[in-house]
Design a protein around this nucleic acid. Structure first.
Lengths: 199, 199
DNA sequence: ATTATTTTTGAATCAATATTCATTAAAGAT
DNA sequence: ATCTTTAATGAATATTGATTCAAAAATAAT
């Protein structure tokens, strides 16, 4: 018997994240990924069924990570809804903060993933938005948030805004600090841009 | 002499928008576009240099349209900054309201376009964000908007949120009305989600 | 009606690259 | 040391689809 040597499986995924981020899924060559992972082209197929399987793997891991962390915030009954919103925003940025390439892939390939027809990703994604919606609902129930906000629009609004800022940040992490981004997002989300003269 | 018959040029673009929206740029076949435009495959190359030229054309037209309309709002000195924000949001949704496929392409292929290395699109895009930034600045100068908001984060925040909602709407236009979306966006943007207890 | 010019056509070409697979290498078992 | 089993390799294969181009069709001019 011979054991698999090293961390090829992980090496390949990590290389793939970088290559997908740089070239985009469709322009990323398996041979480039293999080279970056210090592995032969054929070896990629020992560990993954095909190219899309690699992408799916990246997203699976990512979503699972996001959920796990989101759930901790969501389930914490000590927190007020507005604090939850803040922590959730922080959390998302935190997940990506060490890995800009992953953020780029997450944002850019979302639609590919859905088009490839793997329904589990729709589910992940729905579940994720449900968290956002639940917090808003809780805030409204507690009389803390304004009830005129449409829940469905809200959850996509926040998702879209964050997703995009993640992308902007990831394309050039030195340009704007992730701290500055997340604090502005939280601020905008809770209070909007206007000075408040009304109740 | 023989004249070009019909509106092949336009037919091809319109078919391409639909096909790109359905399959994504990379999975869209020229032959499919040709078929949908009632034209032979080769004819596509009479009117457009190649596949990316078609995509560029779509974006060129779109950005020009967006600018033109944005400028009218931006230049109107009768309007208060908050009114401008509202009108700008309306305007963007309006541009796409008759053509969901166009919205899908706009959102999904943005990164492709940038990766294809055509710098004019970066310029379009920067200029577009500058409008948003200018309005915020004006509002702050007039004491209407809060000055803590980071301009750079703001402009990407709003762009990302709208872009994404456009996408959600376009994927299933019957699901949420575009009116409901834009009014919620305006509301969220100006006032945030919290009831206001502070100044 | 014939000719000249331009458009349209779609099958053939060509390039790119994902995937396969026969071969080689390594590790453990005997 | 030899054998067995699994891992790793990368050149060869196969597919896909963008692009080309020689031929056909349409129109206008003569």
């Amino acid at each position: 018997m011979r054991l698999k040597e090293g961390h090829k499986e992980k090496d390949i995924i990590e290389a793939a994240v970088k290559v997908f981020a740089e070239f985009g899924y469709h322009n990323a060559k398996i041979s480039t990924i293999a080279k970056k992972a210090n592995v032969a082209t054929g070896s990629v197929y020992v560990y993954y069924k095909n190219k899309e399987d690699i992408l799916f793997n990246i997203f699976d891991t990512l979503w699972q990570d996001l959920f796990e962390k989101l759930k901790i915030v969501s389930d914490n009954n000590e927190l007020q809804p507005d604090e939850k919103v803040e922590l959730m925003v922080d959390m998302v940025f935190e997940v990506f903060s060490g890995n800009p390439s992953l953020a780029v892939v997450f944002v850019n390939e979302q639609n590919n993933i859905i088009r490839l027809g793997e329904y589990r990703f729709n589910d992940y994604y729905e579940k994720f938005l449900d968290f956002a919606e639940a917090v808003l609902k809780e805030g409204i129930a507690k009389g803390l948030f304004r009830k005129e906000i449409d829940l469905n629009v809200f959850r996509n609004f926040i998702f879209g805004a964050i997703r995009y800022l993640l992308h902007v940040w990831a394309e050039d992490p030195k340009k704007i600090g992730i701290k500055k981004i997340s604090s502005t997002v939280k601020n905008l989300l809770l209070h909007g841009i206007m000075k408040h003269t009304r109740n």
